[in-house]
Nucleic acid binder design. Structure first.
Lengths: 207, 207
DNA sequence: GGTTAACTTGACTGCTTGGTCAAGTACCGG
DNA sequence: CCGGTACTTGACCAAGCAGTCAAGTTAACC
């Protein structure tokens, strides 16, 4: 049950969330202890457990908040745009911008998707994002602008490109977010247009 | 220094590696203890430390072995193919097949890329894979078959699509690996062909 | 100023871990 | 068959963890 927090309590709680998110991203979820989090803020252990029932609850809340933030950013970016393909592009650019500004959350998403206790939540958030994208992809197909295919699968392909280029070009090579977005948009829109026919002989090898 | 192992020792060591890889994938690296690994095999703790100096050393060895296996599979798949675009397709298909057969390693790659002590090794393996792909991409560009762009970035985009579609369509939805490969190849070859021009007005928002 | 509840401290507890090591067993070569 | 080395056992240790809680502090309301 949600306890009533004062202004001071809300500020402390937000501080814990923000600091913990950063430490989890820098150091890993498991290697980061509750003691490290509270020591880093110069407070006692009981403060932590006043606001959260467990370390895991805090982490789940961080993930959920990040997912909401990303989704809001994408929705805001495409509102008012009539062309479905342009909406897809704006969505890609918005998510890349958000990820550029929220590197910690990006890292936490990556970790969470590979640990069974958090993967379902991550998957849920991805499904929401992909369902959002799939609507625009379907609209683009109806307009004859996008090749036939499974909109959800295409949405996931876009997600895969975005995440990988953000991780490599943005975070590891430090390239300009706009250039990273240009590369992602180019590849993804080309991918949505598709590519007919199988080229390679023996591509479907016998089982 | 590499100690001399007997046939029995080699078999035990391989058994530890294989069982640990599975447990790490199922349960997470950190939540899986050395005790759990040796109990699962019905042996004592000392066996583990006879072959490995630490839990971390075992994990690193598992990652390296998996990376070698994936690379060998891709190289075998494209050997003898003259068309660079076909080589790219065959490489994508081979990696999807290998990942389908080695789900545990896929999960471990995902985890490792988000933890700072393992991310550099993962990144190294990815760089090798992408450098391999970039050669074919460059050859395709020289032949006028692939759009201009940074071959390494395009290689990473392919990696992103492959990993995401494998995780979602193959592992979570259980689709046929060939269909997953078809979707990946289609999107990637379309992406390599590129997509000219920026569509959306205001795509480059002011900072 | 007094009362109350939110907020805070940090010692403490029970538990688990990674890693060690003395002693025992198995196997192989001479 | 024996000696030597590889392999094995599992109790033990030091360290650290997540989480608890009695007691103290702060701030807001009357």
């Amino acid at each position: 049950m949600q306890r009533r927090l004062t202004k001071r309590g809300i500020e402390r709680r937000d501080q814990l969330v923000e600091f913990a998110a950063h430490r989890f991203a820098e150091n890993g979820y498991h290697p980061t202890s509750v003691t490290e989090i509270v020591s880093g803020l110069g407070v006692g252990k009981g403060v932590f457990y006043w606001y959260f029932t467990s370390k895991e609850e805090l982490f789940v809340e961080i993930l959920r908040g990040a997912q909401r933030g990303l989704r809001r950013t994408q929705e805001k970016a495409i509102t008012g745009e009539g062309d479905p393909v342009a909406r897809i592009e704006l969505g890609i650019r918005a998510s890349i911008r958000w990820l550029a500004e929220n590197r910690d959350y990006f890292t936490l998403f990556q970790f969470a998707s590979s640990e069974e206790r958090f993967a379902p939540l991550l998957r849920l958030g991805e499904d929401v994002a992909v369902a959002d994208a799939a609507r625009h992809i379907r609209a683009g197909m109806d307009a004859g602008r996008i090749d036939e295919g499974d909109p959800a699968a295409l949405g996931h392909a876009i997600l895969g490109v975005t995440n990988q280029l953000v991780r490599i070009l943005l975070f590891e090579k430090g390239e300009d977010p706009n250039r990273v977005a240009d590369a992602a948009v180019r590849f993804c829109l080309g991918g949505l247009r598709g590519f007919s026919g199988v080229i390679a002989a023996g591509a479907h090898s016998p089982a």
